[in-house]
Structures are given as structure tokens and as C-alpha cells.
């Protein structure tokens, strides 16, 4: 990354960090607050996918299970046990991490497509279980208490996202981070370097599950109603992947940028082109995959962006 782009990115971060906490207070419409909460919840999930998919190289198509699990744990703990929201979120986070360990042990032995398909299956299994277990409200769903102010969700998601980014930054500069990236780059070489690849992968999956479950918990209380088809919807997994890859998988800020832009475009397009919006949206994703395979954030690391950059990208990933 060159000096100028580093400066630009630092500038943007500073502005965002300075403005974000006071955003809802200084003015803004309920609409924008609502939009930003949605962005941050998705940013946490995209970043969660990024840990396992972008950094570890295991493209999970079932990360929605952590979202759904987090939503249900939070809801049940608040409704049935009258535990406060924040404590419930923490319970949800640990449930997400624990679940990642349990499913990770069999599933992380698989590679590539097999891993993707297996994780896709887990989402469906969890939906079926939730639909058939009495204490989850089965198909009827669960209604949560209504919070007094949407600011609670704004700040909880902001703090959770910030904590995740800082945590990830620390992890990546340490031993675990080197292990995670080594697994992505070449698992056999990693094993011969003394890296216990199984443990490394499980830890990465647990981090992913931990934070994605928090996103689910915030969503549950925010939306005040959850049912299995909503919170275990496989489209949510797909959205996480698109956001992470669009912004830049395997970078810390990429998924956050991706979440913001995708949410914005999706809102903008669906209000302005009600019937055609999926056409533009889909087209944009295809173009990004061809011209910007490393994501938007990669543009900042280039000294010069010209035709050569795009031509190089096209050549790099074609057969």
C-alpha cells in the first residue's frame, strides 16, 4: 500500500470513528439510523465470514447458522429467563463459538466444494431442528420485548463491530494469525511447519461463530420477532459472502466497506428500480468478480489505476 492511499484510508477511518458515535444524536432521521444499524449488523457478519472464508480459505456457505443460533439464544434467554439484553448477547456469542467447535470438528476436515456443501447442509438442519423443538416456539416464532430506543441497537452494533475489528487486528499480527494464513496458503506446508492445522481452523471458525452470533442477537431484539425461515435463511449466508468478497476478502476493512456499499446499493436500487433492481445488483456482482476479484479495497493498494490494472485482474483468475 502506498503512502497516499494509506493516508486516504486513515483519513476516512478517523472521520468515521469520530462521527459514528454521535451520528444519531446530532440529527438524523430514524431512516438513516435504521439503515446504519443494518449495515453494522451485516458488517459484523461479513467480517465473521471473512475470518473463515477470507483468511483461513474455507468458504463457509452456512454461517447463517451462527446468526440464527445467536438470535434464538438471545431471544430465549430474554423471554424465558428474563436475562438482560447484553448478558444474553454474551451468552449467544459463546453459544455461537461452542457450536462452531462442535460442527467444525467433522466439517473442517473437508476442503473446497465439499466444505461449502456440508456447511450449507448444517443451516438447513438447524432450521429443521428449530421448527420441531417445542421450546423454540417451533414454526410460530418468538416475540421479543420492545426496546425503548433504537439507539441501543446502534451503539451495541457499533461497539461489537469495533471490538471485532480490533480483536481481528490483534489476532492477525500474532501466532494464530500466521497459522490461519498459512492454512489458507498451503495446508501441507503449514503442517510441516509445526502448525496444528486442525486447531487453527477450529479457532478461526469459533471466532467467526462468536461474532456472527452477536449479530444475530442484536438482530433478534431489534426486529422484535424471529422465526426459523427468517433467521436461518440461506440468502443471509450468501449476502455475507458477497459483501466480504465485494469489499475485499482477506483484508480487515474490506468486508465493512462491502457491507456498507452493498446495503446502500441494494436500498437505492430497490427504491428506484423496484422491478429491475436485481438485474443491476446481479450485474454489479458479476462485473466485480471479473474486474475486481480482490475487492474494492484492493484499489487503494494500487499506485496507479488504469486499464492495465483491470486487464491484469481478468488474466489473473481466468482459466
Amino acid at each position: 500500500m502506498n503512502k497516499a492511499s494509506e493516508f486516504i484510508i486513515l483519513g476516512i477511518i478517523t472521520v468515521v470513528v469520530a462521527i459514528a458515535p454521535v451520528m444519531p444524536v446530532i440529527h438524523i432521521s430514524a431512516f438513516i439510523t435504521r439503515f446504519l444499524i443494518g449495515v453494522m449488523i451485516y458488517a459484523i457478519m461479513a467480517e465473521g465470514w471473512n475470518v473463515i472464508g477470507g483468511y483461513t480459505g474455507y468458504p463457509s456457505f452456512g454461517n447463517v447458522v451462527f446468526f440464527g443460533l445467536g438470535a434464538y439464544v438471545t431471544a430465549l434467554s430474554m423471554i424465558d429467563f428474563h436475562i438482560g439484553f447484553l448478558i444474553s448477547l454474551i451468552l449467544a456469542a459463546f453459544a455461537g463459538a461452542l457450536f462452531a467447535v462442535i460442527i467444525g470438528i467433522p466439517v473442517l476436515r473437508l476442503k473446497g466444494h465439499y466444505f461449502a456443501i456440508a456447511t450449507l447442509g448444517i443451516g438447513e438442519i438447524m432450521m429443521a431442528i428449530t421448527l420441531n423443538v417445542p421450546f423454540t416456539g417451533e414454526g410460530v416464532g418468538l416475540s421479543l420485548p420492545i426496546a425503548s430506543s433504537s439507539l441501543l441497537f446502534y451503539y451495541t452494533s457499533l461497539i461489537a463491530l469495533a471490538a471485532f475489528i480490533i480483536f481481528l487486528k490483534l489476532i492477525l499480527s500474532g501466532r494464530l494469525g500466521y497459522g490461519i494464513i498459512a492454512v489458507r496458503e498451503d495446508e501441507d506446508a503449514a503442517r510441516m511447519m509445526g502448525i496444528n492445522t486442525v486447531i487453527v481452523k477450529i479457532k478461526a471458525f469459533a471466532i467467526s461463530g462468536f461474532f456472527t452470533a452477536i449479530a444475530g442477537g442484536i438482530y433478534a431484539y431489534w426486529s422484535t420477532f424471529i422465526d426459523p425461515p427468517t433467521v436461518y435463511d440461506p440468502i443471509i449466508s450468501v449476502k455475507m459472502i458477497i459483501m466480504a468478497v465485494f469489499g475485499g476478502a482477506g483484508t480487515i476493512l474490506g468486508p465493512v466497506v462491502g457491507a456498507f456499499i452493498i446495503m446502500f446499493l441494494s436500498d437505492f436500487l430497490s427504491t428506484h428500480f423496484t422491478l429491475l433492481h436485481t438485474f443491476f445488483f446481479g450485474g454489479l456482482i458479476v462485473l466485480t468478480a471479473i474486474f475486481l476479484p480482490k475487492g474494492l479495497i484492493d484499489l487503494f493498494s494500487q499506485k496507479k489505476i488504469g486499464w492495465n490494472y483491470f486487464i491484469k485482474n481478468i488474466k489473473k483468475y481466468r482459466v
Partner: peptide, 14 residues
Amino acid sequence: KPFMELSVLENVTT
């Protein structure tokens, strides 16, 4: 089996 996305130094540091 080099780690293609990492520098030589990062490869060996791992």
C-alpha cells in the same frame, strides 16, 4: 509450496 500472498520474510517467519 510457498505461501504466495506473503513476502519471503513472512513465509519464513511463519
